[in-house]
Design a protein around this nucleic acid. Structure first.
Lengths: 153, 153
DNA sequence: GTTGCTGATGATACACCATATCATTTTTTC
DNA sequence: GAAAAAATGATATGGTGTATCATCAGCAAC
């Protein structure tokens, strides 16, 4: 079974156990995100669904679907790029730590990493010392992946 | 002399020594950013200039001016919020470290802090271990300032 | 001083991301 | 199978940003 199919099956079960429905359209959008490791915009996903499944999908619906998938913790929104990616831990059963996103500014490839708790705690203390609270310890870091870096060189 | 005026004078000298011109419009946009500590969008700055100086300023010009001010290291662009702020170190003569931005998700107040070098190095190593390079070690952190947090409570 | 160059600004059009609103369809539930 | 709820469609609009071409201001050289 493909990695994508495995993730979708997992998502299906997760939704069922939470009493919500992974409808056909929602599955299509999720698969669009799963089949690559690049971040995609809502409009790109609408195009993907039209091309791949032959069904026109209005942008409005894609946004609603992405919102649903976010609530179910199946996708993440990357505010830095205004794009979306599948959560890389869909198939994990265990609770996972806080994700940090490395976004390649050139090719949009995204890698989800976990930063050591102690580093995040240090950061948190700096922030609180300045009179602010982190809304979410999820950071988005503007990067270049090594492929793009080597190409540029 | 007001804090704003001091910063503008400093910017003026800095531009002169770099052989570029801080024109009237550029000064107006910069003053729009300096007179508050909130992040502002290009369009908000255009409105500000129109209201305050009675001169219509097309968005296109504001973007060009912001680009100029960024190159002169007088302002920062916050990609997370699609807004801009004046650099909080305009009036410093010394070179300063890498800035991290705390952005209040509610009121757009921005605080520019410096994180310890060792913390940033740890982060950098994590990123490089994942096959990416930081384009810029400038992070933008989605926060709530304590004022907004207390209001919400 | 006027010719021509350069840098700065204006005007217009357009692309992309996102949401508001109301209509329609599909699915549940009884 | 009718009423209620959930999901999706259609349309309009707003915010951010860029591409492109035109115009204007300052300045150098003759």
């Amino acid at each position: 079974m493909s990695r994508v199919q495995a993730a979708i099956d997992h998502a299906e079960n997760s939704c069922k156990s939470r009493g919500v429905k992974l409808t056909n359209k929602r599955r299509q959008v999720l698969s669009g995100l799963l089949q690559s490791n690049k971040a995609k915009s809502a409009y790109e996903l609408a195009d993907y669904c039209k091309d791949k499944f032959g069904q026109k999908l209005p942008a409005m619906s894609v946004y609603r679907i992405l919102e649903f998938l976010e609530e179910e913790r199946l996708v993440h929104k990357l505010n830095l790029a205004n794009k979306y990616i599948a959560c890389s831990h869909i198939t994990c059963d265990h609770d996972h730590g806080i994700s940090q996103f490395l976004i390649c500014a050139n090719c949009q490839t995204v890698k989800e990493i976990t930063v050591k708790k102690s580093t995040m705690n240090t950061l948190k203390r700096s922030v609180e010392g300045a009179g602010f609270d982190l809304v979410s310890p999820q950071m988005e870091l503007n990067c270049l992946c090594h492929d793009c870096k080597n190409q540029a060189a």
